[in-house]
Design a protein around this nucleic acid. Structure first.
Lengths: 245, 245
DNA sequence: GACTTTTAAATGTCTGACAAATAAAAATTC
DNA sequence: GAATTTTTATTTGTCAGACATTTAAAAGTC
């Protein structure tokens, strides 16, 4: 763990990188305690404030956790699935909102990834996953449901489908697609969409998952993708014509 | 942007969250300048050090960038694809290395995701993507190639396949799968694997992509998955028997 | 007008201090 | 002797103030 004082980068960034590299390389293992801030300051020959800024950078990435008091300190954190989900969702949300990604591109990626889960989910889904999907479809049919609640239920339905594959790595990878892109899509299309149509497509997908028919589930997802893209096109066209007039 | 002084969380974490939420909500737009550290300190009624720690947290997530000097300051950063790739890869690497994910689980997720790209890549790949795949296959046949170089070439091959889908969102999502899981797999299997076998499978996949045959490309990836899993099983079995003796 | 110097503003870093939390160690009580 | 309470040492969290460094605009100079 050494730093280059004549580098252009901030000292705190260099120190954070050095510690991060040690964690990734396995030199610092999970739950291992880092030296105290004062000791790190001495080791790196910087002030305690600089060390603290470096540690905050690592904390922001959930790489370490800190504890106050005697025998406290900074500890290498086991990156949990929920933490990883959260980072995945934040990153995906920002990437989409800041880079003028076309609706079609986001939609295509999102459904391509979900179709990858469909065969596995059809094979391995538990009764519980199926029950969740059915329950969300039921919820989506309630007349008084707000748009926000419908969107949340939509996400929950797809989440159950993905989780049915019983592969936590896949669920993690899909978190960004489902939880970041689905709301984005809903935001664009919720004014125009037909809940009946979506419920019908969700039902078709759930039927396929129940029948353990992965191909049919994939086909249902493709139909949903097609419906969503067409809907978005019509919304865009309507907007364009309104602006023209 | 307000903070709760009686909350248990650190002030710097609360302030970071407040600013992060403003960025995600769109109250702070890309390239907008945040108030200076001194002004933020006054607004939040904390010291400048605390504000700085909050800003370092945001910088670690590439949400802001800072510039020194007059008319410098902290600016909302456009999250670029390379930045998002990097975070995706770091998070995926750590998640896998810290959570005792089984080889089969990681392998299944990785190939399921890549198969999702295969049909799109077969449809849309450019001559350039195909040429990259062929070049990497050629490189993989060179006798003097080190294991590290072979792994890197392996990643580059799959990267080209994914990028052939011409969907940056998909490429971003796959970054974790390809760049984090592939090296992990190589690390486990590189002692036992047959380069000839892998080159043959890569060639089959490239042929399918060249012929614009998505189904065949998917099938090739499935074969590669099967080969990889069997290889890992035999490596594990060999290890187990060696330990028993 | 082109170039140089000055200046003001902002981040980066350091020092020293105190508050708050926390677990071990010591003291006290029964 | 065991249980409880108090003390103590350690460590992070926060603050205040200072100076260094960078940077671009403004002022000055030729």
């Amino acid at each position: 763990m050494k730093i280059d004082p004549k580098s252009s980068a901030d000292l705190s960034a260099q120190i954070a990188k050095a510690i991060r590299d040690s964690i990734i390389a396995g030199d610092l293992i999970v739950d291992e305690r880092l030296p105290s801030e004062a000791e790190l300051a001495e080791q790196f020959d910087v002030s305690r404030s600089t060390v603290r800024e470096a540690l905050k950078r690592l904390a922001a990435q959930s790489l370490i956790r800190t504890q106050r008091g005697a025998f406290g300190g900074a500890f290498v954190n086991r990156l949990s699935y929920p933490d990883a989900y959260g980072q995945q969702i934040t990153t995906s949300t920002l990437l989409l909102s800041m880079n003028s990604v076309s609706f079609d591109t986001a939609c295509e990626a999102r459904y391509a990834l979900e179709r990858a889960c469909a065969p596995l989910s059809a094979d391995r889904r538990s009764a519980d996953h199926l029950a969740t999907m059915r329950a969300e479809i039921f919820r989506q049919q309630q007349p008084g449901l707000t748009d926000e609640a419908f969107c949340a239920s939509d996400v929950a339905f797809h989440r159950a489908l993905v989780d049915g594959a019983d592969n936590p790595v896949l669920s993690y990878q899909l978190a960004g697609a489902v939880e970041a892109m689905q709301p984005l899509m809903n935001m664009i299309t919720f004014t125009a969409r037909s809940r009946e149509e979506i419920v019908a497509l969700h039902t078709r997908i759930a039927d396929a998952i129940e029948a353990r028919d992965g191909a049919a589930a994939s086909a249902g997802l493709s139909q949903l993708e097609h419906y969503t893209i067409e809907l978005a096109r019509s919304v865009m066209a309507k907007r364009a014509s309104r602006e023209a007039s």
